[in-house]
Every structure is written in structure tokens, then in C-alpha cells.
Design a protein around this nucleic acid. Structure first.
Lengths: 142, 142
DNA sequence: ATATTAAAGACTTATATTATCTGTAATTGA
DNA sequence: TCAATTACAGATAATATAAGTCTTTAATAT
């Protein structure tokens, strides 16, 4: 069991977007370059984040992406849920699995992880970035 | 991200093995039948659990499997670690990812889930099984 | 000896993820 | 209006992993 690479890229991308000055946008090309990804692939992840309401896009010249919520309100869980989906990590395999006790335990454990991820905000990561990286991103804004 | 079906089958199987009277063994055939699986497939999962030290096997006529530790000492995490492996759910995708702050947060969250799973014991599930199911398993012991 | 059981390895199939390619639509600025 | 730039969408391909089968071997009890 592993988080998808998409989640990985999404989290890093969100940290970058949060580092942008308010109102600025940045294009997929720049975001992809920073992470050594193809723009078309990262584009799909960004579209997902946009549909999930975390970021918004403007097409056309000088368009790009920016966060669409208060920067200090975006949690790890917000991003993960958007990319990975909402279904539980564990689903009982038995034919009659209503109220499976094993499943209940697994769901409860998962909830502990989610509670923690809901209380961790991406802006904390951005705040700890070194100035050089911050300036690098700002320099790529449209 | 999902737990593997193998983990699913392993957890259910362990609950059955814990339900067996001390010292009794049960064969893969019976265990597979109860879960509607092919014996050869379940066999691989059982071999993994055996190598992990959770169960032990005796070949030959009237052989089979039984738990190899104190029944009340086997946690959910023990089984999951054995089947899924020990690696982290999240690994930073960046080139220079030493001390990635995102990864650190993810590992911490995962630890909350693991801590909970380490404190949940399979015998609690077995204890709550209905008498009919218990007797069904006992009837299949070798 | 023979039946029964686990173990191991090679192999196939299925599924999901990752990634690319191509084309379309929207927006800006000259 | 035109051209450049950017996001968006769909089809497809490549890859990795999981799931499952088949066959053979080895161990054990009766």
C-alpha cells in the first residue's frame, strides 16, 4: 500500500502555489519543470485539484494557477482526499461483510491518521522554505 | 491507496486460527473454503505469515496451521506489517528529498494509525464471534 | 506405501497507475 | 483580427503491482 505519485506531486505543487504572492498565477510548464515532470501529466493532477476547489485556473496568455482558498486553511488531508479519493483504505472481503468487526477496527485506525492530516496545514511547510526557493518560485509567476 | 486483498484474507484467517482450540491445526483447504479462495493462493499468504513468525505449519497427514504466539499478543499491526511490508506509505518524489518536510508530516500521521493498530488485538475480534461460527471452525480442525 | 498436507517457483491474468500524444477552447496583447 | 500562450479533455500506450493458477517437490502420519 502506497500513496500515489500523483499525491506526492500534488502536495509539492500546493506548497509552491501557496508560496506565490497573493493573486499571482504560475503556469503548468514552470510547475512541471521544478519537479522534473511532463507538463501534460502534471496538468491532469492540477485539473483534479481545481475540480476539488483547492486551486483555480485562468487560461490564455499570462494565465495559470493559483490557490482558491485562504492559504492557511489548506490541510494535507484536503489535498490527499482530492487526489486519492474518499474511499476507505480497507474493505472487508467477505460475502456478508455488513458490520465486519475487522473493518471497523481498520476504519478507526485510519481515522486517526486522517485526523492528524486534517490538522496539518501546508502553509507550515511553505513558511519553512528557504528564501532562495521562495524567490525562485516568485520569479516564475506570470 | 488501498490495503491489499492479501491483508484482508490474512486478518480474517488469523481470527480463525485464534479461534481454534490450543494446539489444534487446520488445513489451507478448510481456511480457503471458508473465505471462498483457492487453496494455492491462500497458501502463499499463510507462508508469509509463517515466515513472519505469526503462525507455524506442520506438513503431512493431519498437518496444517496454528498460531505460534500467545493468542492475546497478536495485534492488527503484526499481521499488516507481515503482509504489506514495512516501508512507509509516503516517499518524497523530489530529487533531493533528504529531510523533506512534507514526508515528515506524512510519516508522523501514518505513525498515528500504526500506533492504534498496534494496540488492537485480533483476539478481541475472535472473542466477539458468535458460537455457531466458532463451532464451525472447531469442526474443521485436524 | 499411500494419502495428505505444506512449500516453492514459474507463469499468467487483471487492474491501476503513470505517462504521452493529439487536438480543442479560452484569453491576452499586438 | 491574428498569433502566441495557456488550460482542458480524450485516447492511447507503457509500466508496475497485485491477484491468481499450475505444477512439482518435500514432509508427515497411518
Amino acid at each position: 500500500m502506497k500513496y500515489s505519485k500523483a499525491t506526492n506531486y500534488a502536495l509539492h505543487t500546493m506548497v509552491y502555489l501557496i508560496a506565490l504572492p497573493k493573486g499571482n498565477t504560475i503556469g503548468v510548464h514552470s510547475l512541471a519543470e521544478m519537479q522534473d515532470l511532463s507538463p501534460t501529466y502534471l496538468s491532469k493532477i492540477l485539473t483534479k485539484l481545481a475540480k476539488g476547489g483547492l486551486i483555480e485556473s485562468t487560461p490564455g496568455v499570462r494565465g495559470g494557477y493559483k490557490v482558491s482558498k485562504a492559504k492557511d486553511s489548506i490541510s494535507f488531508l484536503d489535498v490527499i482526499k482530492t487526489v486519492e479519493g474518499e474511499s476507505n483504505l480497507f474493505n472487508c472481503s467477505m460475502d456478508h461483510h455488513e458490520g465486519c468487526m475487522i473493518e471497523n477496527v481498520m476504519i478507526e485506525a485510519e481515522q486517526n491518521m486522517k485526523d492528524d492530516l486534517a490538522a496539518k496545514f501546508l502553509i507550515e511547510i511553505t513558511n519553512k522554505m528557504d528564501e532562495q526557493s521562495i524567490n525562485n518560485i516568485k520569479g516564475k509567476a506570470n
